[in-house]
Amino acid sequence: MSTHAPDSPVILPLGLTALIVRFGLKAGPDLTAAVKAFVADLERDPIAGVTEIACSLTTVMVSFDGGSSVRDKTTKALQERLSRRHWTSVASPDPMRRWTIPVAFGEAFGPDLTKAARAACLSEKDAITDLCSQDVDVLTLGFAPGQAYLGFLKDHWNIPRMEAINPSVPAGALILAIRQLIVFTNENPTGWHHVGQSGFLPFSLERAEPILLRAGDALRFTPVPPAEMTSILADNPDGLGQAKLEVLR
């Protein structure tokens, strides 16, 4: 059971009541597509005894109710599912919905934009244009409720986390590292680059629908001047920050 750069997916126990199916150790679009396709398959055709399914960028977690006999049965069922197809060559499905979200970039609203743009070998202006010219997909939800890992950005955005932790980034902040973006759900410290600010709050118990983002969503950011963001933030009762949602299919 080698955990070093597995060639094929491996099934590993996590604690006493879960298994993970690991497609790889380092994130990339092919692994994320495999993870999403495998989750879709498990949801379409559930394995008996499984109580919860969740995915990270590279793994699928399957929780079960019961002891070792249920784990053995679940392991066998997962092995059989894995053998049905070559999961890492599955194409990523097209998004189901698209959010368009206003963001103010740079200066007080994105103090790390300069650093991040330099690391990507772009001017700040080109960096903003670049970040707003592509859709990013919800890769998975995690870390905090409703918080989505978004990606993947083009290769030049494969920039490491910052050396020093930023002690506090506000909710709605757009942060960036390793070809991914996150819209922050709660004020928290982070090692990612704080490049912009939105009024989009992915998690709010004040709303009928506390969690806005889900698998199958794509996001696109629209640059707005700081003054406009200030007025969006000043009048934002629904926590959507004037985001628009289109249903694509």
Binding site: R22, A27, S56, L57
Partner: peptide
């Protein structure tokens, strides 16, 4: 071997 690991599931304990 920790450098560059993808974020993965963490659980209580």
């Amino acid at each position: 071997l920790a450098a560059g690991l993808a974020s993965d599931f963490i659980m209580q304990g």
